[in-house]
């Protein structure tokens, strides 16, 4: 079983694309098992994060524009779960917060959740590799003219 720490879990669930519906299924199972132990601390809310960039001329940090995000926070008994995703994603974000809390609480579904995260992590790596693979043939090979 892969032992992702909490920060890593956050990032995998935040970036999950293809296959992210599995998060919904797992979260529904956790909720079905947990009954009244689940409290919604912050219902999924759509908002903005200001994107800050380091510009490379002087090294000045500036506000480049806002990015649409959704965040949610829940509690499973004494354990908190937090998630944020880009875009308007209330269901997936809530599911990610539930799964975060479930792993913190050592819920019986933890092995299945971590296995699901490993699959999503691999899918994201594959997506990135494919994205680079698509443009790699456009790398320029110059010929010297003599």
């Amino acid at each position: 079983m892969t032992g992702f720490d909490r920060n890593r879990r956050f990032s995998i669930m935040a970036q999950a694309g293809t296959g992210s519906d599995d998060l919904l299924i797992l979260a529904e199972q956790v909720l079905a098992d947990s009954g009244d132990a689940v409290t919604v601390v912050t219902p999924p809310r759509v908002g903005m994060m200001m994107l800050r960039l380091h510009e490379p001329v002087n090294g000045t940090v500036f506000n480049a524009g806002e990015v649409l995000v959704t965040e949610a926070q829940i509690a499973l008994g004494a354990h908190q779960g937090y998630a944020m995703r880009l875009g308007r994603e209330p269901e997936l974000t809530l599911a990610a917060a539930v799964l975060d809390a479930a792993v913190e609480a050592a819920h019986p579904l933890t092995p299945a959740i971590l296995a699901g995260l490993a699959t999503l992590d691999e899918a994201e790596r594959a997506r990135q590799l494919a994205a680079w693979g698509e443009v790699a043939p456009t790398r320029v090979a110059f010929d010297e003219m003599r």
Binding site: M48, H54, N63
Partner: peptide
């Protein structure tokens, strides 16, 4: 929309 917060400063050199 509410502004929830700020990202940590990113650097274009970390761009994929």
């Amino acid at each position: 929309l509410p502004r929830i917060g700020y990202t940590l400063p990113s650097d274009g050199r970390r761009m994929r």
